[in-house]
Design a protein around this nucleic acid. Structure first.
Length: 662
DNA sequence: ATAGGGTTAG
């Protein structure tokens, strides 16, 4: 009996006494005759139950494993007799004898989660080696401990096990490493994930396309397609061909970055290499089209997929329902919804939120509530997406009564709102939701913080930020942008500076992939941050500083966008430097950014102030030609400009045009 | 590996 060896090893430090032996065998006897219940109140437990007795009990072969586990769990729940490391390991040895791996994992999980029990692997192994010479046991144990640490997000400890295994030349399986790769990926620690992957490649672990796909997908989701592609190419030179999953991830990466044509090209490449695209390949591209609002195209794409013999699944149904919903065809969306149910595909939170959102945009409250009730009845409990759609709808429509009814559904609150103000309503809603245990995310908080800032209720904003942190929610770049903007507008630059220091201290990141890759890699500030500051400096007349920031953006790989260029163009126009303004406009267009209403307004205003009416009017017609619909503001600029420069006839003509356009 | 909502700047 292997556990006996453990006892012998342990007895070197613990001198066995007859009394211990006796207590142990009494407990064993008691446990064998009945359940644990009577023992709980027995004097046996209260008196001499120490570490040594516990081990004697747990390792006694006469005691069934079932009773062992009962006894162990009883001790765990008993603060006075918490089992120690030796007890855990003794139990593990017994469990290994009958190959109860799930239970071993449970015990290891106990060790990992208890600071008093946690110990380096080497200790655990040398402890266990006293009761077995089975090398497979040690390997299995390390493997399981590694997984337990990875699953618990204890990456340092997991790496420690890996180090030990590598050093001790214990065989490491790919499946085991994949657990850590997956855990790192889901925690958004892609850099660590990437370097661990490279370690595995360097170590003697036999890896397959599966591990490669995990890393590739992680990189692609962050928009780092090129890096993922590079990794795939390197792996091919090592004899590992990528699989369909990896190719699908690359396609997804391109879609995320809005590079639809590249995505479709990648599909062709994978086909050329002999891989057959699957439903996921098609859905990924369809959703890429949806991201670009090319719904008609996405619809045709999915129809073509069905024509090729693929059948709809939950995801493709959801995408298609979303397409119709976004195009405003709720009838067709609803028809598909029925079709999927008839076909045995059960709608989920995504389906319902898509439809509820669609109906909310149509203002169809009845249909919204009907769906909301149906999902609850059908056992789909509404998640944050659904609630947020409802919250937004309440805020937008200022429908307090309905909001109340929805709150009741969510959970009981207590406070009755007494005002119709959108902000108050949203704030109350937030309080109710939190009280009801509904967790809100950073987006929702940011919305409210911004609302309070705009009302100049900065203390409230700060209070909400405190709430976020207390709930362990990540304060992100957008949160800071909102606050920075608020202080900039008030001209409190000292406070802004302090905010930047705070960002640094709290390691605040931009968590978006939508802007530039650099930002996706975790840069603190984004384009909007720069825009806020540049605009603030322009308004305060710190032009040199604004120009410096504009140049700094490029250096930091933060891409200037339409707003950035417009702010700069507007500044040059206001300072009378039309040459520079037009130069920037050329740069902007070369970047593929098309000027919009704001940009044209600045340029036209600039030309007028120099009396260049013809240029101004030429810009105006150019703007209209490009499909930019003029608004009241721009008409006012032009009409005022013309009349000021002695062209009342032209002004009148434009006035008529404006009225005609509504 | 794929699907749904909402945030900041001119």
């Amino acid at each position: 009996m292997s556990t006996q060896k453990l006892i012998r090893a342990f007895s070197r430090t613990h001198i066995p006494s007859n009394q211990h032996q006796e207590t142990a065998s009494n407990i064993v006897q008691a446990l064998s005759y009945s359940s644990i219940e009577p023992l709980k109140h027995s004097p046996l437990i209260r008196s001499t139950l120490n570490s040594y007795v516990v081990q004697l009990v747990l390792s006694n072969p006469r005691l069934s494993l079932r009773s062992c586990l009962q006894f162990f769990n009883f001790l765990r729940e008993n603060p006075a007799h918490k089992p120690d490391l030796a007890a855990h390991l003794t139990l593990i040895c017994r469990l290994y004898d009958v190959r109860k791996f799930t239970d071993i994992q449970f015990v290891l999980n106990c060790i990992a989660n208890d600071v008093n029990l946690r110990t380096p692997v080497s200790n655990i192994v040398s402890f266990v080696e006293h009761c077995t010479v089975d090398p497979i046991f040690v390997q299995k144990l390390c493997d399981m401990l590694f997984r337990v640490y990875a699953d618990n997000g204890m990456f340092k400890e997991a790496t420690g096990v890996f180090d030990y295994m590598e050093k001790s030349e214990i065989e490491i399986h790919e499946r085991c490493c994949m657990v850590l790769l997956l855990a790192l990926r889901s925690c958004d620690k892609m850099d660590t994930c990437f370097s661990f992957f490279q370690r595995i490649v360097g170590a003697k672990v036999e890896i397959t396309a599966k591990s490669v796909a995990i890393v590739v997908s992680g990189l692609c989701v962050r928009g780092e397609v090129e890096r993922a592609k590079g990794l795939m190419e390197v792996m091919v030179t090592k004899g590992i061909e990528p699989d369909v999953l990896a190719y699908n991830s690359l396609i997804n990466g391109y879609c995320i970055r809005g590079m639809l044509e590249e995505a479709i090209k990648m599909k062709a490449i994978m086909e050329h290499k002999g891989f057959v695209p699957n439903v996921v390949t098609y859905s990924t591209i369809a959703s890429g089209m949806c991201k670009l609002k090319r719904y008609e195209e996405a619809k045709k794409w999915l129809f073509a997929m069905i024509k090729r013999g693929f059948t709809h699944n939950l995801v493709t149904f959801n995408i298609l329902i979303n397409i119709y919903s976004k195009m405003g065809n709720l009838n067709e969306a609803h028809r598909l919804f029925e079709e999927m149910k008839e076909g045995g595909v059960r709608p989920d939170n995504v389906t319902y939120s898509t439809l509820i959102d669609g109906y909310s945009k149509k203002g169809d409250l009845q249909e919204m509530m009907w769906l909301f009730e149906e999902m609850e009845k059908g056992g789909v409990s509404p998640n944050m997406f659904v609630y947020n759609i409802l919250i937004n709808w309440c805020c937008e429509t200022e429908n307090l009564e309905e909001a109340e009814r929805i709150f009741e559904k969510m959970k009981k609150g207590g406070v009755r709102p007494d005002t119709n103000a959108k902000l108050e309503e949203a704030g109350l809603l937030l309080g109710k939701l939190e009280k009801g245990g509904v967790r809100l995310d950073t987006f929702t908080y940011n919305t409210l913080i911004d609302a309070y800032c705009k009302e100049e209720k900065l203390e409230q904003s700060y209070k909400l930020r405190g709430c976020m942190e207390a709930r362990g929610l990540r304060v992100d770049t957008v949160t800071y942008n909102i606050l920075i903007d608020a202080f900039c507008k008030k001209g409190y630059f000292k406070e802004v500076e302090r905010l930047f220091e705070e960002m640094e201290k709290d390691d605040v990141r931009a968590n978006e992939v939508t802007y530039t890759i650099m930002e996706a890699r975790g840069l603190r500030v984004n384009t909007v941050t720069y825009n806020i500051l540049i605009d603030a400096f322009c308004n305060k007349g710190y032009f040199k500083e604004a120009e410096r920031l504009f140049e700094e953006m490029e250096k930091n790989d933060v891409r200037a966008n339409k707003v950035t260029y417009t702010i700069m163009i507007d500044m040059y126009c206001n300072r009378g430097n039309l040459t520079k303004a037009h130069k920037l406009r050329v740069v902007m267009e070369a970047m593929g950014i098309i000027p919009d209403l704001y940009t044209y307004a600045s340029l036209i205003n600039g030309e007028f102030s120099f009396g260049k009416l013809d240029v101004a009017l030429k810009l105006f017609s150019e703007m209209k030609q490009r499909g930019v619909i003029p608004d009241l503001f721009i008409y006012t600029i032009i009409i005022l400009g013309l009349s000021k420069h002695g062209r009342p006839d032209g002004a009148l003509r434009l006035y008529d045009e404006m009225i005609e356009a509504g």
